[in-house]
């Protein structure tokens, strides 16, 4: 990084750059062609381009139901996740820095333990309890699993935000003015971490909208299982729905990157 650049690098410049463009091209074809094909499949018809599938699918009552269901689940998940992660990360940062690796490790575990196994364990652990015997119980179990899979993203975002502002100093300043812990948390910590929490929220939202494994195994009327179900009956509509879902998830993540960039410019 710190090394001074000399003219030598240019010696192999032309062939290097050619290979670089070539591999970029190969990767771009692999990553974009399926998306192009999908958009094309959603609008083609024997008579030309038609957007009918989009209109039909957006008007379908099941779409609104499942989409509303997943949106609601995502919002509840985000609230629970933030309520657990923000105080925990703050507390670790302030009081228990030695436990930091442990907490970090625990929040990353859901990245490697597949949701499938987590759900399997959950359903067997709570077998024949109200959690598995009623639909509300299954819904709560799903929310619990959602919160767990949101931890890696929420924690990383909040932790990064916390490193950017010196919360220790802010906390001491607030406390020396006589603020209570609750005041510190709501008036100092949360406002300073708002952008970070939003970051984590956008990723969580996108992830839960596309989530299939947990909701389908727990028999919940979520968006992704509906999409798969639709594909066996109306392929064109399902494909249009797939395009919409990609646009929504990628849009929300791009929004996040935009917000994050603004934040770094300000700082």
């Amino acid at each position: 990084m710190g090394g001074e650049s000399t003219g030598k690098v240019g010696k192999l410049g032309i062939p290097t750059r050619f290979w670089a463009w070539l591999w970029l091209g190969i990767a771009a074809v692999y990553l974009f062609l399926p998306l192009v094909a999908m958009v094309w499949a959603s609008i083609r018809s024997p008579t030309g381009i038609r957007l009918d599938a989009y209109g039909e699918v957006l008007r379908a009552p099941r779409f609104l139901e499942t989409f509303g269901f997943s949106t609601q689940a995502a919002i509840i998940t985000i609230l629970i996740s933030a309520a657990l992660v923000v105080p925990t990360a703050y507390w670790v940062d302030l009081k228990l820095p030695r436990l930091r690796p442990l907490v970090e490790f625990l929040t990353v575990v859901p990245l490697v333990i597949p949701p499938l196994l987590m759900t399997f364990g959950l359903i067997r652990l709570f077998n024949n309890t109200p959690l598995t015997n009623s639909n509300q119980g299954l819904y709560i179990m799903m929310l619990g699993a959602y919160v767990i899979i949101s931890f890696p993203f929420m924690y990383r975002a909040v932790d990064a935000g916390m490193q950017a502002v010196n919360l220790r100093v802010l906390t001491e300043a607030a406390q020396s003015l006589g603020a209570s812990w609750i005041t510190v948390l709501t008036q100092v910590v949360v406002p300073n971490l708002l952008v970070a929490i939003l970051n984590g929220s956008f990723v969580t939202f996108a992830m839960i909208l596309g989530e299939f494994t947990i909701s389908s195994l727990l028999n919940q009327p979520a968006f992704s299982p509906y999409m798969l179900d639709l594909s066996s009956r109306r392929g064109d509509q399902a494909t249009a729905l797939g395009v919409i879902s990609i646009a929504l998830t990628w849009g929300s993540i791009s929004l996040l990157q935009l917000v994050g960039r603004k934040q770094t410019f300000k700082g």
Binding site: P87, W91, L99, V103, I113, G121, R124, L125, V147, I148
Partner: peptide, 16 residues
Amino acid sequence: GLVPFLTFIAVFLLFP
């Protein structure tokens, strides 16, 4: 201070 977080992890990840 870590009890709520750890409890959640235990119930929904560790015990399963």
